[in-house]
Design a protein around this nucleic acid. Structure first.
Lengths: 202, 202
DNA sequence: ATTGAATGTTCTCTTTTTGTTCTCTATTAT
DNA sequence: ATAATAGAGAACAAAAAGAGAACATTCAAT
């Protein structure tokens, strides 16, 4: 487990390496993490080395070498490393854009809950049968939102929301073989909007 | 069985770990659960430890380590409540089928990483431009797996995998407007298979 | 090759924060 | 009454963070 200072040091080194193409000096690191002592930085580096997160060529200037496999050794990595982008037929943008996904942003909010989707009504929006959608609980929606709507108080569906003139609401399935249906606003109760979606292939 | 305070403490630690990437200090926990005494927090931690829900490195700062395996039996995982299923035009099965999604299953595995998808090559499989896919790092794949494949060592793509006779490998885009391409097996290097996918609508 | 500035390394020292162990009190349910 | 839970807070030990001095080594310019 890394201390906050070690984490800060490691992140600075990663960023520096990516931006400048070589590793930083101890003075640069000290400056980067907001302390004054090279000795202290050296201590952090040694600790990170002992934790296999990087290796240092002894006495070499700029001799820090990041261990890119390090994430795989981490005992707990609640945050997944986001390694880069992948495109259709495009070369991978290697390590350039390395940052992290914070799943906390995704989910850990008290007014959110999950629903498992059955049916294909939102297929064309990339929400498949069996997917899980993360819903933010709220009673209103904007045009274009994907909402959980309760029709006549008993039937809940997942549809794209559109407000029509004259107090009508259009619920649009994202599936070419299905039709959008308009309802009087009184019949529709918004239970929440989709803020995320996840799928497991296992 | 956990007391309310212990549950509160554990949930706070889970959330903190996910958000910050390291465990909280006793003071931070006290603050987080709304009490003032580090001593009390210490007592809760020790109790949680005796219930095998976490382990603490003694005298180490931020030395709390969550025990993820223990979560499968108890309803205290770092989870979102999964409220039910939602269907196209079907009534919601309210709270009847309430269980939970365990995010630990989804991500907390050291040999997994994430990639952000650009392009539409897997559109028909519900993987859209901008989505994040969770990759399990491995060098082999089964027919039907969605894989990250490196072509000629320099071009990484996301495609469905199929092994053909005579040492050929077919990489199939899930997009009607794109064609599957067959390669000699030597040209293809599997970097991992897709085990999850997530999307944020925010 | 020599030299000097920059850099890495190894110390000691101090301060602050944190973990640990207590005792004490209050509340609640059995 | 008793036990379990919840909390405050004091006192001490230890870890982490940091400053900075002193020395060793690199590396590039001369």
């Amino acid at each position: 487990m890394l201390t906050p200072s070690e984490t800060k040091t490691l992140k600075f080194i990663q960023k520096y390496c990516i931006e400048k193409g070589c590793s930083p000096t101890l003075t640069e690191i000290a400056d980067g993490i907001g302390i004054k002592s090279r000795g202290v930085v050296h201590r952090y580096i040694k600790s990170l080395e002992s934790k296999k997160l990087l290796s240092v060529a002894s006495n070499r200037k700029r001799g820090i070498c990041l261990n890119l496999e390090a994430y795989e050794n981490q005992s707990i990595a609640p945050i997944i490393p986001l390694l880069g982008r992948i495109a259709a037929g495009q070369p991978i943008e290697a390590i350039e854009d390395r940052h992290e996904i914070n799943l906390a942003d995704f989910i850990m909010d008290p007014d959110r809950f999950a629903l498992q989707v059955t049916g294909e009504s939102m297929m064309d929006a990339g929400i498949l049968d069996g997917d899980t959608v993360i819903i933010k609980h709220q009673n209103t929606a904007n045009n274009g939102d994907i909402v959980v709507a309760l029709i006549d108080g008993l039937e809940a569906t997942l549809k794209r929301f559109k407000r029509l003139p004259k107090g009508m609401i259009l619920l649009i399935p994202e599936n070419k073989s299905m039709e959008a249906i308009a309802y009087e606003a009184e019949r529709i109760q918004i239970q929440g909007v989709v803020v995320g979606q996840l799928r497991s292939y296992q």
